[in-house]
């Protein structure tokens, strides 16, 4: 894949950062507004997929290689598991216990603020990392398939 015309390239080089930032916003505000880890992760992956469509697969892979996505995928899953397992060791001793959570009281200042829901934002960040990395990895691998098979056909013909 070679990428698209100069118009698409220059516009997407502007837009990609905004999409990425929007993905981060959706991920870390997941406990207050609609969205969360999965939706945010999909948007994060979309910014890289846009890069891939506009500049070609090689350029996107220079920025985020296949090995790195696979590692980020695993790191995301392990972070999520770590947040869940921390419940065993802190506080009330239970799997998935929200050990950072404080009892909410009326008029308390932190309610409905960014840092307010205990471990939920942490889990959202981990899920966002995992979903973003794995979705980009899927698209990358499927496009590798396509390049391989077209290369194979050219050899045959």
């Amino acid at each position: 894949m070679k990428g698209m015309t100069i118009i698409v390239k220059s516009i997407s080089s502007w837009v990609k950062m905004l999409i990425f930032l929007f993905g981060i916003y959706i991920t870390i505000f997941g406990h207050l507004t609609p969205g969360g880890g999965f939706a945010g992760g999909v948007i994060l992956a979309c910014s890289f997929i846009l890069l891939m469509l506009a500049f070609g697969r090689e350029y996107a892979e220079e920025n985020l290689s296949l090995g790195l996505t696979s590692k980020l995928d695993c790191v995301g899953a392990l972070l999520f598991a770590a947040v869940a397992l921390c419940g065993f060791f802190f506080g009330a001793a239970g799997f998935f216990v929200n050990f950072l959570h404080q009892e909410w009281q009326a008029g308390q200042a932190t309610a409905l603020k960014l840092v307010s829901a205990g471990t939920i934002p942490l889990s959202n960040i981990a899920i966002g990392l995992k979903v973003g990395a794995s979705l980009f990895m899927i698209v990358l691998i499927l496009s590798v398939f396509r390049c391989d098979s077209s290369a194979g056909k050219q050899e045959v013909s």
Partner: peptide, 19 residues
């Protein structure tokens, strides 16, 4: 033995191996 062990041990190992 806490019951989540049965799910958590293979799951964490499964995601650790590709690293």
């Amino acid at each position: 033995i806490p019951l989540p062990v049965f799910v958590a041990v293979p799951l964490v190992t499964a995601f650790f191996l590709p690293l």
